[in-house]
């Protein structure tokens, strides 16, 4: 579609000095369009797209929908414990990531560390970030067993990569002047960082850490579904035993909890920026 639109506008642009349509140009565009269509067709089959199934299984969908529309909160205390566990996973996953992310961030900043340090540290951070927390969760479940601790470790490892990257970008954007002022007094490198760098980046760091905490609460929910503890695990159990009204109740609790958290966290972040 895009190709056609471009063609049309190109023709219209002739008076503005755009080149005339050549035969080669038309051939190239047609070939491009053909490739795009081929990719879409291949992906359709590969993903086993089957809208018919939605109609065919309309009965199932109706049952599911009906059950989901009547959330059952009888066991709300159980779900509340689950969401609290999810928060706990996110709190420790984020805190550990901040603790380990700060030294990594400083070592990855070009204005703090020499290139032979920043390069390997950045590649290491890329590695942590490249692998999704869900994958880490599966790995840690294999290592330490099902449960919230595996979730904490998964969030910690992935978030360390993200936090280190965000923190390091803040460090690289600081004003070098105050750091030189500190250096001029005969301070050590560590003191330059403590007095010259950290005060400049602290508001941003706090804001980034809170933001990551918010998104880690969402991630912890999903990690629970694969066995990393918390409300996600409870949700998975209710789904697998076809307790849809209970599953709906859990979803409502998750949405309310996450929205509340977002609102609170936004208020706090606004104070620091």
């Amino acid at each position: 579609m895009t190709t056609v639109t471009t063609n049309g506008s190109t023709a219209g642009m002739n008076s503005h000095g755009m080149p005339e349509r050549s035969i080669i140009g038309i051939l190239v565009r047609t070939a491009g369009l053909a490739v795009a269509v081929a990719v879409l067709v291949w992906a359709w089959h590969s993903a086993e797209m089957n809208p018919g199934q939605l109609v065919q299984d309309a009965g199932n969908m109706a049952t599911l929908g009906k059950d989901f529309l009547r959330p059952d909160f009888t066991e709300w205390e159980f779900y509340a414990a689950g969401i609290l566990e999810t928060f706990a996973i996110a709190i420790w996953g984020t805190l550990l990531a901040v603790i380990f992310g700060i030294p990594l961030a400083l070592l990855a900043s070009a204005n703090i560390a020499p290139a032979w340090v920043t390069f390997p540290v950045r590649r290491f951070m890329d590695m942590l970030r490249a692998i999704n927390e869900l994958v880490f969760a599966l790995i840690f479940i294999a290592a330490v067993g099902l449960g919230p601790f595996a979730g904490v470790l998964a969030l910690f490892i992935h978030t360390t990569g993200v936090i280190a990257k965000l923190f390091s970008e803040a460090v690289e954007a600081i004003d070098p002047g105050p750091v030189e002022g500190i250096r001029g007094t005969g301070a050590t490198k560590l003191q330059e960082i403590v007095y010259g760098v950290i005060p400049q980046v602290l508001p941003l760091w706090i804001s980034f850490a809170l933001y990551r905490f918010e998104s880690n609460v969402r991630s912890a929910t999903v990690i629970g579904i694969v066995g990393g503890g918390g409300i996600g695990m409870t949700f998975n159990e209710t789904m697998r035993s076809f307790q849809y009204p209970q599953a709906a109740a859990i979803l409502v609790i998750v949405v309310v909890a996450v929205s509340l958290l977002d609102i609170i966290s936004q208020r706090i972040r606004a104070k620091f920026i």
Partner: peptide, 27 residues
């Protein structure tokens, strides 16, 4: 032994004046 003064003052903006001045004792 060298006291440095800069065009842009180069104080750490978010720290108190006292802390900025105490930095002189770091060495």
């Amino acid at each position: 032994r060298i006291g440095l003064i800069f065009q842009k003052f180069n104080l750490v903006n978010r720290l108190s004046v006292t802390t900025n001045v105490l930095v002189g004792a770091l060495g």
